[in-house]
């Protein structure tokens, strides 16, 4: 029984068509022409309880719109949606008790109050029993190392501190599901790693279902087994991160460092990508060419100081999909 289920989910935004120019602004007032923009177009997906899924796509692909429908604050144009047995937009408040939300670009903490006062307010809002509140607060303060700024007004916190506060705020009421919208945006490497560690622990120890929206694919590689890729409102891939890499990342790069200058390096079965006389980069398809044979060929032909084999990372794969669009990978993958 999936905890999140959508079927043919669609959201169309309708807005008045604007006429450009100063007079145009006036004409817009009386215009009856509307523009329709399909933000989400037939999204069908289902998540099992305890899954940690990366929901990714380029800007404007429909990610945030989907999340807003899942939280119940946007009403779908058509399609079905169910979160923990509730239709979110029909029972927004009941749904709110099951979910926690963290926006990297927006805080739910009360700006003028000390951090801990925001937590107290949330305790009252969700009606969290004192023992549970105490237990969670203590755990989060320790995990996220918040004791030094617990009494600081939120407006004085650094971004990293504020994000930690936001994570705790979203989880005090033990939500079954957590939506994370770019939670690591703008953070330094250490703070990023701390947040990732926290997400992984919450998922593993509490079994919380997590949907992670991000542009930082290192987040996805570190945290998610499953990835849902959305573009132009359609889901273009839904499955294992490994499968995506296998299907899409068929090329490898062999980097050779020569002992001495080599002009016009060449290898049969690989394509020269770049060369500067002492190093060379060859690109090849691993389905058509075995790497070990290529390396043997290189060592027979040249005197080598170093050999490295580069796998494509998720980022370069996703970048190709954004630019070229998602097409079923060629035959070779079968």
């Amino acid at each position: 029984m999936p905890i999140i289920r959508t079927r043919d989910l669609r959201k169309v935004f309708r807005s008045v068509k604007r006429v450009p120019g100063a007079l145009g602004a006036l004409r817009t007032l009386f215009s009856r022409a509307y523009e329709e923009k399909v933000a989400v177009d037939g999204v069908t997906m289902s998540l099992e309880a305890g899954e940690l899924v990366g929901y990714i796509g380029p800007n404007g692909a429909g990610k945030s719109t989907t999340i807003k429908m899942l939280t119940g604050i946007l009403v779908p144009t058509s399609g079905e949606i169910e979160v923990a047995g509730i239709v979110p937009h029909e029972a927004r408040q009941a749904n709110a008790r099951n979910i926690g939300v963290v926006f990297g670009q927006r805080s739910q903490l009360y700006w003028d109050l000390p951090l801990v006062e925001s937590f107290e307010l949330l305790r009252a809002i969700y009606g969290i029993p004192h023992a549970q509140y105490r237990r969670n607060l203590d755990a989060f303060v320790e995990l996220l190392q918040m004791d030094e700024f617990l009494r600081t007004p939120v407006r004085q916190l650094s971004l990293g501190q504020r994000m930690r506060g936001d994570f705790a705020a979203a989880m005090l009421h033990d939500p079954k599901i957590i939506y994370l919208d770019e939670p690591t945006i703008g953070l330094d490497v250490v703070a990023k790693e701390a947040i990732r560690e926290f997400i992984a622990r919450i998922n593993a120890e509490r079994g919380t279902t997590i949907i992670l929206t991000t542009h930082d694919l290192a987040d996805v590689e570190r945290l998610c087994r499953r990835i849902v890729l959305i573009d132009h409102g359609h889901i273009v891939f839904d499955g294992d991160v490994e499968r995506l890499k296998n299907e899409y990342g068929q090329h490898r790069t062999l980097v050779l460092a020569f002992d001495g200058a080599v002009e016009h390096p060449h290898l049969d079965g690989a394509e020269l990508e770049a060369s500067d006389g002492v190093t060379a980069r060859f690109r090849f398809n691993r389905m058509q060419q075995r790497a070990d044979l290529l390396i043997r060929q290189a060592s027979e032909r040249y005197s080598l100081m170093d050999v490295t084999l580069e796998e494509p990372d998720l980022e370069s794969i996703i970048r190709r999909i954004y630019v070229e669009g998602y097409a079923q990978p060629e035959e070779a993958s079968r």
Binding site: T71, I73, Q93, R106, Q108, Y126
Partner: peptide
């Protein structure tokens, strides 16, 4: 400011 979204995501009227 769009911050009404965070309020709507809470179980409150």
């Amino acid at each position: 400011e769009g911050t009404i979204a965070t309020d709507l995501m809470k179980p409150i009227s």
